[in-house]
Nucleic acid binder design. Structure first.
Lengths: 127, 127
DNA sequence: ATGATTTTGCTAATCGTTCGCAAATTAGGG
DNA sequence: CCCTAATTTGCGAACGATTAGCAAAATCAT
């Protein structure tokens, strides 16, 4: 039948991610849910994250220790500005990409077809 | 005495990286060296990569399977244009960063202090 | 409610990476 | 050169995050 079930663990994981809006590891999500008297297995966390990633509802990032972390975000193309203090992630659009594409073409003969960017600094609240 | 020795394994790993100029995993480096009748232990490859990373002589990137890969590059600030066909990595400067910084400040109140970018496409040779 | 199907939870397996330590290399005097 | 002290290597074991297997539980459509 190939349907997708809506279950309690999935709802809780999704809700937590939507609430936090910062990069969390599977272990952190597991720990946070466990604290709020919800018992989800770590493997379920991993599976749900994989699912959400496929649906483009979260994006994944490997942190400085090599651990995968995940944040809830829009399924459309954008980049992330990550606050170094509180971890809050903001989505930012990129219009200025043409200038880079042009630079790459003229200086390197490189035909750009995709790009990834990350910004680090202080968010409005932490500044 | 706190000196740093120059050894055969280190020279070979460094030479290989400088020759290839594409992202290689520790295992790939190990395999390539082994083929050219050089016996370096995998752990030595890892240790040397860590050393080179500290010295900013290689940069590290986690590939799509979660494996760490490394490429030889300049110690100064720049970004990488990675060819999807041959894997060749080219270093590109970024002047256009002010426009992003401005956008972040005005639209998000975000104070930018660092950024990371990657470009994907076809290099001049593969186009 | 019922039954087919999807998910979960648990545990064990996987696999890249790191560690520990004895043996081998290196650098630099004598 | 040769010796010694210090650093590296190589090997294997240990580690830790992620994945896989499978029986039991939850979900959905009828």
């Amino acid at each position: 039948m190939r349907t997708e079930y809506s279950t309690r663990p999935r709802e809780q994981i999704t809700a937590l991610l939507r609430k936090e809006r910062r990069y969390l590891s599977a272990a952190e999500i597991y720990a946070l849910l466990r604290k709020s008297r919800s018992k989800v297995a770590l493997s379920t966390v991993y599976r749900t994250l994989g699912l959400l990633e496929t649906k483009r509802e979260v994006s994944q990032r490997v942190d400085e220790h090599g651990e995968s972390t995940y944040v809830s975000c829009a399924p459309t193309h954008h980049h992330h500005a990550i606050c170094r203090k509180c971890g809050k992630v903001e989505e930012v659009a990129c219009e200025a990409m043409e200038s880079f594409a042009g630079e790459l073409r003229t200086h390197h003969g490189f035909e750009l077809d995709d790009h990834a960017m990350e910004f680090f600094g202080r968010c409005a609240a932490c500044k």
